[in-house]
């Protein structure tokens, strides 16, 4: 059983929902990333989604794009990201790390090489935004051969037949994108999300994470009631963006504690 699967299993036994914060590796500066990861865990992260900076993040909104740009100023590429995961693992062997990024940095070193190096760094899952299941059969095979979970996105427009196709390739969990549009977009319609998550559950036993549009305690609590995991990205990055070297870890901890309390207070529907 992978670390991601084990984490979901434990949380389920406790009747809890996973809180998964997203940060972009190298944002605001590479020297902060490993400390930030530990801060996230100390303040309630059950897993961490770690973004691989990319020059052309088409599926992201301006907030996460700026995070990529800040990281790229310091030349934080895939190799540097894997080094950060290794450094994090020196003192934390428990928290699952899910890399999130775009296909090209992976293609640049090749699927096999990437899978080997991700395994060596002790990565647990990979979300590749622009690898739909039709285009990444080989890649998924390489990941699964090394017990790394390929995590896929489902969107409000994903048809039931496609959900089947996707969940057959996915492991660990599936990630329901609760809004049309890009990351950091407007408001969440919790009733609709609830309906969608229920229909996804009819097609798979994989845990369902929900992300996009979760900005505060209210939306986190409402989402936690219906999902197995709550992913918070743009809001986390906004707090990082608004911080300085001195208050960065404190500000992130404050947001995490608020989100964690909300997620833990949710009553499962």
């Amino acid at each position: 059983m992978s670390r991601i699967q084990a984490t979901f299993k434990t949380l389920k036994q406790q009747g809890k929902t996973a809180l998964i914060p997203y940060i972009t590796a190298g944002d605001p500066h590479p020297k902060h990333t490993v400390n930030l990861m530990h801060t996230l865990v100390k303040n309630g992260a059950d897993m961490i989604e770690l973004g691989i900076p990319f020059s052309d993040p088409m599926a992201d909104g301006p907030v996460i794009q700026r995070a990529s740009e800040r990281a790229l100023v310091h030349k934080v590429g895939l190799t540097a990201v894997l080094e950060m995961v290794k450094a994090f693992r020196q003192t934390d062997q428990a928290t699952p790390i899910i890399l999130m990024g775009y296909a090209n940095p992976i293609e640049a070193i090749g699927a096999v090489n990437f899978a080997d190096r991700a395994k060596a760094a002790d990565v647990d899952g990979v979300i590749t935004v622009d690898y739909p299941p039709e285009e990444c059969g080989e890649f998924v095979k390489e990941l699964r051969a090394r017990d790394i979970d390929p995590v896929f996105l489902l969107s409000p427009t994903t048809e039931p037949s496609r959900i089947d196709l996707i969940v057959n390739q996915a492991s660990g969990f599936v990630y329901y994108v609760s809004l049309k549009g890009v990351t950091g977009a407007a408001n969440l319609d919790i009733a609709e999300v609830s309906q969608r998550v229920a229909s996804i559950r009819k097609q798979t036993n994989l845990p369902v994470g929900v992300g996009f549009g979760i900005r505060d305690a209210v939306t986190a609590k409402a989402t936690a009631a219906i999902a197995d995991a709550v992913v918070v990205g743009s809001r986390m990055v906004q707090v990082i963006e608004a911080s300085n070297d001195e208050n960065l870890l404190n500000n992130v901890a404050t947001l995490m504690l608020e989100l964690k309390a909300a997620v833990d207070a949710a009553v499962k529907i």
């Binding site: 935004v129 739909p132 996105l153 969107s155 427009t157 994903t158 994108v177 049309k180």
Partner: peptide
């Protein structure tokens, strides 16, 4: 070639 897009664009 191919279709390397995020899931949100697949239906469109």
């Amino acid at each position: 070639g191919g279709t390397f897009v995020a899931e949100t664009l697949v239906e469109a």
